[in-house]
Simulated assay, not measured.
Amino acid sequence: MYWRKILDLIFPPKCLICGSLIASMPGLCSNCWANINFISKPACAKCNLPFEYDFGEDVICGACTASKPLYHKAKSVFIYDDFSKPLLHGLKYQDKTHLAPYLASLMRIAAGDLLSYSDIIIPVPLHKKKLLSRLYNQSALLSLYLHKSTKIPFEPNLLIKHKNTKTQTGLTKKQRLSNIKGSFMINEKFIYQVKDKNIMLVDDVITTGATINACTRLLLKYGANKVNILTLART
């Protein structure tokens, strides 16, 4: 559009990671795009962990075999590493909320057909104290833009984090499970949106899966049919 061309002349489009000039916004330059470890097949049919070799369509990884996740399937856009870190940290810790629409568009692509049979999109919630200090929930922002592009119903207040846990960063899997235990509850106002529904649970990153499994367990307890997971990154 004409106005877009004018804006591009005044404010030249820049890469969301390195700041170099690009053809259009929002987006990444070719160098930063090439450095991102996007997740594609072959990968675990359950948690989306990339495989070095193609073992077949429905093969799951050793971790999922040893301890099967409660969710149905998980999808992530890219591996969390030094190259993708600026995008995740920019949105999560540096108030770069303008990244959310673009990152949500990548998540929509990564989700594939999981979104096509989702009845509702909900984010992993933040405790009210953390929300007040950060002023926004990055997972809710991503969920909102997924809702806008898909028209799938979105309910940011369905899950409540009522226990103010310490950060999961740096904790072992066992410590993460203990830290997050009993942290979430269902908002009684929205219980009717859970029973027999296919739920898309959105978060920014999967590490050990402790948080998403805790949320999934609660949603299944209240009658959800299936819970699928969609995140920006995974370790």
Rank of each mutant, 00 (worst) to 15 (best):
V124H: 11
L91F: 03
P101F: 02
H72K: 12
D95N: 11
K85S: 06
F83E: 13
S84I: 10
C64M: 10
L99A: 12
K85D: 06
Q94G: 03
L132W: 03
L126A: 09
Y71M: 09
H72I: 07
P101T: 05
K68T: 08
S133W: 15
A66F: 02
K68D: 01
H72A: 14
A111N: 14
S67L: 13
A66I: 05
K92M: 00
A74I: 07
D81Q: 04
P125R: 14
S67M: 04
D81S: 00
A66S: 12
H127L: 11
L70Y: 14
I121S: 09
P125Y: 05
H127K: 03
I109S: 13
I121G: 12
V124F: 14
G90V: 03
S84R: 08
Y117Q: 15
T97F: 01
M107A: 12
D119T: 05
L103H: 06
A66W: 00
S105H: 02
S105F: 01
Q94Y: 11
F83C: 05
K73P: 01
S76G: 03
A100Y: 01
K96T: 04
K130H: 12
V77T: 10
K68L: 15
V77M: 05
Y102G: 04
D82C: 01
R108Y: 04
M107V: 08
L106E: 11
H98S: 08
Y102T: 07
D113E: 09
S76K: 00
H127G: 04
A100I: 02
R134P: 04
Y102F: 08
F83V: 01
R134L: 09
A104M: 10
L103G: 06
D81P: 02
P125T: 06
Y93F: 13
K68V: 03
L91R: 03
A66L: 13
H98Y: 15
A104K: 15
L99G: 09
L87W: 08
L106C: 10
I109K: 13
P86N: 05
R108F: 07
L114K: 08
Y93I: 03
K75P: 00
Q94V: 11
N137G: 10
A63W: 08
L106N: 03
I109E: 14
Y117W: 13
M107Y: 01
G90W: 03
A111G: 08
Q138P: 11
L99Y: 08
P86Y: 11
A74E: 07
S76Y: 01
Y136A: 02
L103E: 13
T97P: 07
S116W: 10
K68M: 12
L103P: 11
L99R: 05
I122H: 07
Y117V: 12
Y80P: 01
Y102P: 10
S133L: 14
S116G: 03
V77S: 00
H89V: 12
P101L: 06
K96W: 02
Y102N: 12
N137H: 06
H127Y: 09
C64Y: 03
S105M: 13
K68F: 15
L115V: 02
A104S: 11
Y71R: 00
I109A: 07
S133C: 04
P125I: 15
Y93Q: 05
L87K: 09
A111Y: 11
L115H: 04
D82W: 00
D113N: 11
L103C: 15
F78P: 05
K75A: 15
F83G: 04
F78K: 00
Y80S: 00
A110F: 13
